[in-house]
């Protein structure tokens, strides 16, 4: 089962890219020119997150270098070991719903510190790749139409985030544990 799913993972990008290009040709889109136009936006996206990455990565790196992260580890030792959750992923789980750029900063930090093939990196990648910055989304959409009483929207959003993290821990240990 795992082998089949890994095989699908391998084919999914070629499949999506081929569908996009073939549909583009059928609809007579100048694919090369449009690609370049879109790629230009990639430059701005990467540059735009640079200052956020600096802010988050220095604070997390200091937190780790000072030994504070070991304090958290000792505090939650039993549950972390039981569920095989690497302690590095705890800050990521806390900030995921709050800030998208902080999340990317912490993810980059984890990948650089624990190595890109580590279990911590894979679990973090799954958590980030399967969720959204709940607070930001609610603020933007409710703000845009002037809704003040958001009723149960926040509770549902945060419960789904928590569910997603727990499920990600489970799935990561199945695929990479």
């Amino acid at each position: 089962m795992r082998e089949i799913l890994n095989l699908i993972s391998l084919f999914i990008i070629p499949f999506i890219v081929s569908v996009i290009l073939i549909h583009g040709i059928i609809k007579k889109v100048p694919c090369y020119n449009v690609f370049v136009e879109g790629a230009k936006e990639g430059l701005f996206v990467a540059i735009k997150i640079l200052p956020y990455l600096v802010a988050i990565m220095i604070s997390i790196a200091m937190f780790r270098a000072s030994g504070s992260i070991e304090l958290i580890q000792n505090l939650f030792k039993a549950p972390l070991e039981y569920f095989k959750i690497p302690v590095e992923t705890i800050p990521l789980m806390i900030t995921r719903s709050l800030s998208g750029s902080a999340t990317l900063g912490i993810l980059s930090d984890i990948v650089n510190q624990t190595g890109v093939e580590s279990y911590a990196s894979k679990l973090s990648a799954i958590i980030v790749g399967s969720s959204e910055t709940t607070l930001y989304v609610l603020a933007v959409y409710f703000g845009a139409v002037g809704i003040k009483n958001i009723r149960y929207a926040l509770i549902v959003g945060l419960s789904a985030d928590l569910f997603g993290i727990i499920f990600a821990v489970f799935i990561a240990s199945y695929f990479f544990g």
Binding site: I16, I20, V29, C31, V34, F35, G38, G42
Partner: peptide, 8 residues
Amino acid sequence: WLGFIKIA
């Protein structure tokens, strides 16, 4: 990625 998505 944004290049391909722009085509889509």
